[in-house]
Design a binder for these strands. Structure first.
Length: 387
RNA sequence: GGGGGGAUGUCCGAGUGGUUAAAGGAGACGGGCUGUAAACCCGUUGGCUCUGCCUACGCAGGUUCGAAUCCUGCUCCCCCCA
C-alpha cells in the first residue's frame, strides 16, 4: 500500500459512518485507477436539499481526487418506491413528471458536483427487463436475507404489510450497481442495507463487488426528523437566498453543531454566541448556493424583517379593487391566498398591519385612500403593497 | 374460501343517540419575549354576506323530535385461519 493512497483514503473516509468491508476502499485506491463511484437518486420529489448535499459533498471529494461519479437517476425504481423510512405508499408519477424531475435533479446536483467527472445514467436503461431476466435476478436473493433489513424486520414483526414490490427494491438498486460497474457506492446510513445487498447482486452476476460508504443523516429544520421533502422540513438548494438564510436561522440551536459538521466540515466557533454561529452558518451556505455576497444581502434582509421589524425594500404589488371602501377580509384573502375567515381571525388577533401599525377586529372596511400606496402585512414575513 | 377489525378535521387520535365545528396531541399560523424564523409563554386553527348561517365524521339510503354515534346496502383498507 503506497503512502499517497493512504492519505487519500483517510481524506475520503473522514466524516463517513460506515466504510464496508473494512479496508476495501484502501485496496481499491491501490489499484491506481479512477474509481467509479455510484450514487442513485429517485426522481420522486424534484428538489435536492441539504440532506443530499451531505452525500454530494463526499462525492465531490472523490471527483477532486480524479474519480468518476456515476449519478443514477432512478426513473425506473421511482415506480417502485424505496420503502426506507415511512411506509406510506408513494404516489405514482407519470413518465412526464419523472422526466421533468430528472432534469431538475441533474441541474441541482451540479451545484455541488463537477460536471466533467460525472456520468449520468437512468436505470430504465437496464431495469426495463423481461420477466425471465427478473426471475434470474430474484433467484439470487432470499426472503430471509431481505427480512434482515431493519424496517422490513420491524414491519414483519408488527404484522404490518410489506409488498412484494417493496421487497424487490434492494434487488433493483443492486442490479444498478452491476449494470454500471460500480466500484464504490455512497448513501445515507439509512441506505446501508441496500448498499450492501448490491454486493450480493454483483457477486451473483460475476461483477467485482463495490465497497460501501455511508454518510450521517442530516436532521431537518425541525431538528427532529431526518431532512426530507415529504416531511416538509427541508432546505432546498434552489431556495431563494432570503428563504435559505431564514430557514437556516430557524433550526434549533442543538442541531447547529451537526449542520456545521456535515455541511461545512468543521465545528462552530466555541466563542461565538449561538445566534452569531447560526448567522455564520446561514451566510456561508447562502453564499455557496447563490454566490459570494448573497449571504450578506440575505442577512441584511433578515435583520430588516426580524430584528428591526421593518418592511422589506422589495414587495409584491397588487391592484386595489374598485370602490371607495375596501372590504379587508376579501382583499387579504385574495392577496395572500387565505380564506376570508382566516383573514378575520388574523385581524382579531392583531396579526395584520397597515404600514406597520396593527389593525383590529373591527377594521373590516377601510377607505380606499388609506390603502392606496400602503403596505399590508400579515405576521412578519408576508407583505403586499397596493397600487 | 372462511372468520374478524377498521374508514373521524392538515396528520395522529378520542368519541358509541342530545351545548359535537367534534376531547387530546402534532404540525401550521398569529401575538409576546428575544443578540435567532431557536427556546419559552399566550392565542388561533372548516367556510361565509359572522352576536348568525351553511357544510362536515368513507359513499348511498333508512330509523329517530334528534345520529359521527343505531339499521341496510356499497366502496376501500387491514388482520387471522386455510
Amino acid at each position: 500500500m503506497t503512502e499517497p493512497h493512504n492519505k487519500e483514503a483517510a481524506a475520503l473516509l473522514a466524516g463517513t459512518v460506515d466504510a464496508l468491508p473494512a479496508g476495501a476502499l484502501e485496496a481499491q485506491l491501490d489499484l491506481g485507477r479512477p474509481l467509479r463511484v455510484k450514487f442513485g437518486i429517485d426522481p420522486t420529489a424534484p428538489d435536492i436539499h441539504l440532506g443530499h448535499v451531505v452525500v454530494l459533498r463526499k462525492l465531490r471529494e472523490f471527483q477532486d481526487l480524479g474519480h468518476t461519479v456515476v449519478l443514477i437517476i432512478g426513473d425506473y425504481t421511482a415506480r417502485v418506491g424505496d420503502p426506507s423510512g415511512r411506509s406510506a405508499t408513494r404516489p405514482v408519477l407519470s413518465p412526464e413528471q419523472i422526466d421533468a424531475n430528472a432534469e431538475t435533479f441533474k441541474r441541482q446536483a451540479f451545484t455541488v458536483l463537477d460536471r466533467e467527472c460525472t456520468e449520468i445514467r437512468r436505470n430504465s436503461e437496464w431495469l426495463d427487463m423481461s420477466m425471465q431476466d427478473l426471475f434470474a435476478l430474484t433467484r439470487g436473493s432470499t426472503v430471509a436475507q431481505l427480512l434482515e433489513r431493519d424496517d422490513f424486520a420491524k414491519r414483519f414483526a408488527d404484522r404490518r404489510p410489506i409488498s412484494i414490490l417493496e421487497l424487490l427494491y434492494p434487488l433493483l438498486q443492486g442490479y444498478d450497481s452491476h449494470a454500471v460497474g460500480a466500484d464504490v457506492e455512497l448513501g445515507g446510513t439509512d441506505q446501508k442495507f441496500n448498499l450492501l445487498h448490491a454486493r450480493a447482486i454483483q457477486q451473483q452476476y460475476g461483477s467485482a463487488q463495490q465497497s460501501v460508504l455511508t454518510m450521517p443523516i442530516l436532521p431537518g429544520i425541525d431538528g427532529v426528523e431526518r431532512m426530507s421533502k415529504s416531511l416538509g422540513n427541508y432546505v432546498a438548494v434552489t431556495d431563494l437566498p432570503d428563504q435559505l438564510f431564514g430557514k437556516l436561522m430557524r433550526i434549533p440551536d442543538q442541531v447547529m453543531p451537526t449542520y456545521y459538521e456535515l455541511l461545512l466540515g468543521r465545528i462552530p466557533d466555541p466563542a461565538a454566541p449561538p445566534v452569531i454561529a447560526k448567522r455564520a452558518l446561514a451566510g456561508e451556505l447562502t453564499d455557496r448556493f447563490h454566490g459570494a455576497g448573497a449571504g450578506a444581502a440575505a442577512e441584511r434582509a433578515f435583520d430588516t424583517l426580524h430584528v428591526d421589524h421593518g418592511i422589506p425594500d422589495e414587495i409584491e404589488e397588487d391592484a386595489l379593487p374598485d370602490g371607495e371602501t375596501i372590504h379587508l377580509p376579501e382583499l387579504l384573502a385574495g392577496s395572500f391566498g387565505i380564506s376570508r375567515s382566516e383573514a378575520r381571525r388574523l385581524l382579531a388577533g392583531g396579526g395584520v398591519k397597515l404600514d406597520g401599525a396593527a389593525l383590529g377586529r373591527d377594521d373590516l372596511d377601510l377607505d380606499r385612500a388609506r390603502l392606496e400606496g400602503a403596505v399590508l402585512q400579515i405576521g412578519r414575513r408576508r407583505h403586499r403593497r397596493y397600487v
